[in-house]
């Protein structure tokens, strides 16, 4: 049992082969095998969101997924959004608006926010969307509900919403 299993993934644009113990989570594959430690382990049980990455553009908890399940998938981690020397707009907004303190939940928050903006653009509803048939209005409550899968013990939530809001406003057509 636990014989080596294989999968080929694309991580931040590079092909990566997984060959190993099927118990290895996508999170541990990224952190331990690929040394992409930007994705954080906060609970290992899908209860905090620190391990959020994008799989084929959608945000998921990488702790509750096996690496071997992702054959053929495209994974984007915080390292794929931008290095410190060339931050993406969202990453810069988190710095400007102090959308973090200790920084441990931050890569997960940012990956989550990126996908969240795409979900909003696609018109996906949330638990606070008043009218399910028309598109959501991006109120503060909408944004905070949609970001509630990412815990932040430092309590940077209001600043996280400010950072996301700033990016949304910058992207609005003039």
């Amino acid at each position: 049992m636990s014989e080596n299993c294989a999968a080929r993934l694309t991580v931040n644009g590079s092909p990566e082969d997984f060959l190993g113990d099927p118990r290895r989570s996508l999170l541990d594959f990224l952190r331990l095998d690929l040394k992409l430690t930007g994705t954080k382990k906060g609970c290992d049980h899908g209860q905090c969101g620190a391990c959020t990455v994008l799989v084929n553009g959608q945000r998921i908890n990488s702790c509750l997924s096996l690496a071997v399940m992702h054959d053929g998938d495209e994974i984007t981690t915080i390292e794929g959004l931008g290095p410190a020397s060339a931050l993406s707009e969202l990453q810069r907004a988190f710095v400007t608006h102090d959308g973090f303190q200790c920084g441990y939940c931050t890569p997960g928050q940012i990956c989550s926010a990126k996908a969240m903006l795409d979900e909003l653009a696609a018109g996906w509803p949330s638990a606070v969307t008043k009218d399910l048939t028309s598109g959501p209005i991006p109120s503060d409550e909408e944004l905070s509900e949609r970001m509630s899968g990412n815990l932040c013990r430092c309590g940077a939530y209001p600043n996280i919403i400010d950072a996301i809001r700033a990016v949304m406003q910058a992207e609005e057509p003039a």
């Binding site: 382990k41 710095v95 973090f100």
Partner: peptide, 21 residues
């Protein structure tokens, strides 16, 4: 002022205890 440690943190490049290779 912005935190000087900010860019590394938002890029996932600030190493925490378990992350030294």
């Amino acid at each position: 002022l912005d935190r000087p440690d900010g860019p590394l943190k938002v890029a996932g490049q600030a190493p925490y205890a378990a992350e030294y290779d």
